[in-house]
Design a protein around this nucleic acid. Structure first.
Length: 111
RNA sequence: CGAGCAAAACAUACGGCGGCGGGGCGUUUUUGCCCUGAGGAAAGUCCGGGCUCCACAAGGGAAUGGUAACUGCUAACGGCAGCCGGGGGUGACCCCAGGGAUAGUGCAACAGAAAUAGACUACCCGUGUGCGCACGGGAAAAGGUGGAAAGGUGCGGUAAGAGCGCACCAGCGCGCUUGGUAACUCGCGCGGCUCUGUAAACCCUACCAGGAGCAACGCCCAUAUGGGAGCAAUGCGUGCCCUGCGCGCUCCCGGAGGCGGCUGGAGCCGCAUGGCGACAUGCGGUCGAGAUAGAUCGUCGUUUAAUACAGAACCCGGCUUACGGUUUGGUCGUUCG
RNA sequence: CGGGGUAUAGCGCAGAUGGUAGCGCGCUGCGUUCGGGACGCAGAGGCCUUGAGUUCAAAUCUCAAUACUCCGA
């Protein structure tokens, strides 16, 4: 696994409360700086998206997009990706484009 | 051709490229090769077990909860098979919480005279009469209400009537009897004539059940060190002093993280034998996920009917619910021969 | 993994031990007022979440399903 995961609920809650959010119809990104020196990523798909198969697919698509997009040495950030209603119907290449756009807007990726 | 019924198997496969989880081997310090990788319901969590911990002499009873014809199958079951009884359908076939209402209690709105017991109209007798009727008694056949009104039809009988008596029929109980392991059933005789429904109302009878759940439980580290109460005290540190903050002891609540549990089992496949069947026995073959924020995907090609419902989280046996096309065998209807 | 609750008029809620369902706010009409509000009178609006079953009869009892929600480990 190329990234480290966010696991605990309070870490997600801190990202939602203190981090900045970047909204797109495909996916929502929350960014919060941490002091660990490495980047942690959490992927969320709520029950509004659908049943277990649909939620698994939404997570899988986002993860595939991150493998294409996220370089391993960006610095210390906590990133939370939230799947939306269209996410399971998209291709991972489309999501990769949006993720790159959002990360660039957040200042995580620099050209 | 249309409609409907039952059953069965499947739920893509193969190859190229890239990617992910697990295991093995090599190389050794970041890579290479090989093997393997979701379901018929994995779901809902409605039942039954295994396993683990807690409780408990054996055993009996009470409470609570559950099950309910009978015989079998099974580790067990509320499941399955066969069979009996009842019900639905023209039929193939399907459905049934299917013990007890003669142990007791409760309830039965409205309507109706009356709802488990009686008399409004009409009937009969007697008395009084102003001949319209009133009062007392008999009887429960006729009327209308209702889901339900106390067996049905006919004859006799009577003041009028009534199972009051008789014949036949329906139902119940008892005794004998045919078939069956049994539920039940074939037939005969006798009895009083007979009794509403509801137990998915309380209840009675028979049988079953100790409780909790893999976040169980065991081990490592006894640590990131959290919260509360009490005690001792104005002790120590900070500080000029007070307040404040930190430090002590005891008890209670709690406890991140890592490893095991973790998958070879009432396992699966084939054949034979026994059995109507569920299933059992024997022989042979075979190994088919184990993640820990959670792995099965993307793309291209070929072939197909291969789409729908849908994703393992300790493991099995069922039930229920969701859902795709295919095949087979019956049934009914229409038309043609 | 284990356990519980709710679904009734546009909205918020009653209706416990079966007999054709109400309350408040809102809505409609009329009255009152010069007009509006408040007030008074009258009225409409419900397959009681869905599907089966028990019963003469089900919002109520039983089973299954759906949606929302809560609790414990």
């Amino acid at each position: 696994m190329r990234y480290r995961p966010l696991t605990y609920n309070n870490e997600f809650t801190r990202a939602y409360a203190r981090g900045k959010s970047y909204v797109h119809p495909h996916v929502v990104l929350y960014v919060n700086r941490n002091r660990l020196g490495y980047t942690r990523v959490g992927i969320t798909a709520s029950r509004k998206i659908g049943n277990a198969v649909t939620r698994n697919r939404a997570r899988r698509v986002i993860r595939a997009a991150l493998w294409q997009t996220l370089p391993p040495d960006v610095g210390g950030y906590d990133l939370v990706f939230v799947a939306r209603g269209q996410t399971p119907r998209l291709k991972s290449t489309q999501v990769a484009k949006t993720a790159a756009k959002l990360l660039r807007a957040a200042g995580v990726l620099r050209d």
